[in-house]
């Protein structure tokens, strides 16, 4: 029963009519503000931003099989460098955005370089370590970051200042970013990502500099996190320490996993579920972190492919060879 529903969704969304579905989806999100009450629009804007964050993360996690356990670092990096430039350096909006994105790229590259220095096993560890380190910096460097209170007074662009116009602005930007991400992931570059997920050593022995490859993917992925961070700062008109906390990193990974890390739209679906759920639940329950933990455990143990799973359908392989020993092999 369960499987059938999943199958159906997979078929509708991935196989048959991606373009049709896409257009329908865009139309729905485009007319959404006209029908729903305005307090929901804020929430949906947040869904869009987190969807971008998760989709960017999924470039590393789902496609390339890397372990970016501390992605909130880069969302926070975008938000904080943007916020500090505006609030502390009194820059105007446009240059602040450009400069913040530039800072993101540079710091991404440095952290990425460091994370990729060790063995593959250490990558996730370091990713998370940098997340905690960044959280510490934010908490302690109060004159600049505002500590736990954060920075407020972040403006939105003038013409998009209202709730509904801002929603459309975010929607437009997110769609542009999606277009870029999907172009990248469907290019030869993106093909290599899947190879990386399956077997890094084989890629090396195909003459590919996997460290450099991972670094570039890392920077791109972190860049979109930075974009999401800037948008989030505008949405909430402020930068807060929750943007860098490790629980946000975990949430982003859960968005990918629940929605389906092997599909392009999985993280978006996951983002919608997690953001809406966390906003409704955390109003009533104090223990959101624990609940997220339970969700993580259940998801990982329960359904590992996520909702939008790309099933390995190619099991019915015609038999042409004589020998049918399993792939494990017996070579001594």
């Amino acid at each position: 029963m369960n499987l059938k529903v999943e199958d159906l969704m997979t078929r509708i969304i991935i196989r048959n009519k991606p373009i049709g579905f896409l257009i329908a989806g865009v139309i729905i999100v485009a007319v959404l503000p006209l029908i729903i009450p305005s307090q929901w629009i804020q929430l949906f804007t947040q869904v869009l931003i987190m969807a971008l964050f998760a989709t960017g993360l999924n470039m590393e996690m789902g496609y390339a099989g890397m372990m970016p356990l501390g992605q909130a670092t880069f969302l926070g990096l975008g938000a904080y460098s943007f916020g500090i430039l505006i609030v502390k350096a009194h820059m105007s909006l446009a240059p602040a955005i450009v400069l913040a994105l530039f800072i993101c790229l540079i710091v991404n590259a440095i952290i990425g370089f460091l994370c990729l220095r060790g063995k593959p096993m250490t990558f996730g560890l370091l990713h998370m370590a940098f997340n905690i380190l960044f959280t510490t910096i934010v908490a302690k460097w109060i004159p600049i970051t505002g500590g736990d209170v954060g920075l407020s007074g972040i403006p939105r662009p003038h013409i998009f200042a209202g709730t509904v116009p801002f929603y459309y602005m975010v929607l437009g930007l997110v769609l542009i970013c999606y277009l870029i991400i999907s172009t990248i992931m469907n290019s030869p570059f993106g093909k290599i990502a899947q190879g990386l997920r399956e077997n890094e050593e084989r890629l090396i022995f195909l003459g590919i500099n996997t460290k450099r490859y991972q670094l570039i993917l890392f920077i791109i992925s972190g860049f979109f996190a930075g974009v999401a961070g800037i948008l989030l700062a505008m949405l909430n008109r402020g930068v807060f320490s929750s943007y860098v906390q490790i629980i946000l990193s975990a949430q982003a990974m859960m968005m990918c996993l629940i929605g389906g890390a092997y599909s392009f739209w999985g993280p978006t679906l996951g983002a919608a579920l997690i953001v809406i759920f966390s906003n409704t639940v955390s109003n009533y329950v104090f223990y959101w972190q624990g609940i997220l933990g339970v969700i993580m455990i259940v998801t990982v143990l329960g359904f590992r492919g996520g909702i939008l799973r790309k099933r390995s359908v190619k099991t019915n392989v015609p038999d042409v060879s004589v020998n049918k020993s399993p792939s494990g092999g017996t070579a001594g």
Partner: peptide, 14 residues
């Protein structure tokens, strides 16, 4: 792709 040095080609359909 690796042989043709297109590993870092991010724009053409793959």
């Amino acid at each position: 792709i690796s042989r043709a040095r297109k590993v870092f080609n991010m724009y053409s359909p793959g």
